[in-house]
Computed example of a mutant assay.
Amino acid sequence: MKYISSNDIEDLKIDPITCVEWVKEGFLMKNRSILPPKVSIHPKGIDFFNTMPCLLPAEFHTFGCKIVSRIAGNHPALKSDLMLFNSNTGEMISVMNADWITAMRTGAVAALSINTLRSSSAKIYSFIGLGVIGHSTLDCLLATNCDKKLIIRLKKYKDHAEKTVEKYKDFKNVEFQIVDEIDDLVKDSDVIVSCITEAKDILINDTKLFKQGVLVVPVHTRGFQNCDSIF
């Protein structure tokens, strides 16, 4: 049995395009896999432990179970670990830190969703929540759209928006806009991406700001409560 650290995985230098392709491959084999609903246990408040088992198609002879936790006060708040087993023998193959895997898998799913479901004329992509998941989503979105002109609109929060612009400054096909107000973020947007873990209130009170045909991607469904009331 092997232990694989986060550094071991990061040292592989897996690029975002590969992550998106792997996610797509995973979706295409989902109907041949056994993927029960995750079990969520809350020790207190909004803290949680999510248990996510999956048995891959027979030719892979692999069973995996990922445990994701979010504990208030931890840095980072989200942590995850993954156990892999040989499903033919029951032998544990490895235990690995899954922080990088979780972040990039989440970003790749978001990018694949955007690329698949957006309007063909989409130009303005608005982001709220610019932490690890926000950046992994941008990593995958920008890597898979190098041939398109994108306007990326960012909601200002502390210095996160400015740091994001600096991180992606080498993408010549991207124009960044930073806005102070949530209404300005949403207005005229073709794609709205929320990477907030949890929003306690409705973010957009004036629903007329949502452009007809807009694609809303709530990476964390509790991070964009308008989905409950509108979409």
Rank of each mutant, 00 (worst) to 15 (best):
M1N: 09
Y3A: 14
S6R: 10
I9Q: 12
E10S: 14
K13V: 06
T18E: 05
E21V: 12
K24T: 13
G26A: 14
G26T: 10
L28D: 14
S33I: 08
L35I: 09
P36C: 06
V39P: 04
S40G: 11
G45Q: 12
I46P: 15
N50Q: 11
C54W: 03
L56R: 14
P57S: 05
H61Q: 11
T62Q: 14
T62D: 08
F63W: 05
C65K: 02
K66C: 08
K66Y: 08
I67S: 07
A72G: 14
A72W: 09
A72D: 15
G73F: 05
G73D: 06
P76I: 10
A77C: 11
A77I: 13
L78F: 12
L78W: 11
N86W: 12
E91P: 03
M92K: 10
A98D: 06
A103F: 06
V109Q: 01
I114V: 14
I114P: 00
I114E: 02
N115H: 09
N115W: 00
L117G: 08
R118I: 02
R118V: 01
R118T: 02
S119M: 04
S121M: 05
A122N: 07
I124A: 03
Y125I: 03
S126W: 02
F127D: 00
I128V: 13
I128L: 07
G129F: 01
L130C: 09
L130M: 12
V132Y: 00
V132Q: 02
I133A: 03
G134L: 06
H135Y: 01
H135T: 06
S136D: 13
S136L: 04
T137R: 02
T137E: 03
T137H: 02
D139M: 00
L142I: 07
A143P: 01
T144L: 04
C146M: 15
K148I: 06
I152V: 12
I152E: 02
K155P: 00
K155Q: 09
H160N: 10
A161W: 01
K163D: 08
K163T: 06
T164K: 05
V165E: 01
E166P: 01
K169I: 15
F171S: 09
V174D: 01
E175N: 10
F176G: 05
F176I: 10
Q177T: 04
V179T: 06
E181Q: 13
D183R: 13
D184Q: 06
V186G: 03
S189R: 02
S189D: 04
D190R: 00
D190L: 02
I192V: 11
V193A: 00
S194Y: 02
C195L: 02
I196V: 14
E198F: 03
K200S: 15
D201A: 15
I202L: 14
D206F: 02
T207P: 08
L209P: 12
F210P: 14
Q212A: 01
G213C: 10
V216P: 03
V217R: 00
P218I: 07
R222Q: 13
G223K: 03
F224M: 10
Q225H: 04
D228Y: 09
I230N: 13
I230Y: 13
F231P: 07
F231K: 09
